[in-house]
Computed example of a mutant assay.
Amino acid sequence: MIREDATIDAGELYDVAAALGMTDQQVRLCIKRLVAEGRFTHEGRGRKAVLRATADTRATIEPDLEYLRFAYAQDRGRERWDGIWHLAAFAVPETNRAARDAMREAIVYHGGAPIQGGLYVTPHAWEDRIRALAAKLGIDEQLTTLSTAELSIGGTTGGAELAARLWPLDQLAAGYERLRTAAEYTLAVLPAADPTRRLSLAITLAAEFDRAVSDDPLLPPELLPHPWTGVAARAAVAECWTALNAAAPSPIRLFRWYSEAVAEITARPSTR
């Protein structure tokens, strides 16, 4: 709900929160905590107040637009897989558990799937990011990276078969089905929605989108079932963001970020 001038109208916030099932007391407590944490400043009282995002908050609220652009570019055939698997292995002693856990979390965040203890694989080139993180954590000497066009795990060698073995594709597909349902519902009711309803729809859609993509490694189409429900779900969401941005009475950062990222990819000529 943060606008382009980094503010949130408190009255609008209370109305949207109510539409999403929150009480005024819950909102007041949330605002109090955010101000105490230094994430927002608070000007005025009650519903006439204005919340202003601090510099630290403005620097951290932007979604992962690189991930978003890559997802839509891949959906439209503008990112093609070269058939190369990228592997990373690390062995960090228990005495440096924090670095070990941070490395594992980052590898999984970047789409890596575990093969066996300390060994992960992805179809995407990730070496620069993984090495930079290892250096930052001080464990670069414990990191090994390699790439190969031939990968066999327990006798499984086919690309799609390997993907089905390594990543929870059924779980990912179920999440995208929920997302597509939410997006189609949003598109259906949006024309008649008032401003409060539009914002509540957008927040619900954003939450469903985050839930669907949080564990998605964005595998190349060659490794996924056909048709892949993620493509249809993301296309429906793209329509929603465009419609929401066009209907917004005042500029909302979230709408602009998503709609511009999608528009940027759509405007490029296809390589197919």
Rank of each mutant, 00 (worst) to 15 (best):
E62N: 06
E43Q: 08
R131L: 11
G159I: 03
R39W: 14
R80M: 06
L65C: 00
F40I: 03
Q142S: 13
E105H: 08
L87T: 02
Y120W: 06
A55M: 14
W81V: 03
H110N: 10
I139C: 12
I84N: 10
R39K: 11
A160P: 03
T156V: 12
R100P: 02
N96H: 09
A160Y: 08
A106G: 09
G159N: 02
T95C: 02
T95F: 03
A135R: 09
K136G: 08
A88L: 14
L119R: 13
L34A: 06
R100D: 05
A102E: 14
D101Q: 04
F90G: 11
G44L: 00
A106C: 06
P93N: 02
R97L: 13
R52Q: 04
G118R: 00
H110W: 08
E94F: 08
E127K: 12
R80Q: 05
E79C: 04
K136N: 10
T41P: 00
F70G: 06
N96C: 15
S147I: 15
I107Y: 04
A125M: 11
H110F: 06
M103N: 15
E66Q: 15
P63T: 01
R69H: 13
Y120N: 12
T156P: 09
R69D: 06
Q116Y: 09
H86M: 14
R80E: 15
D101L: 04
V108K: 11
Q74N: 04
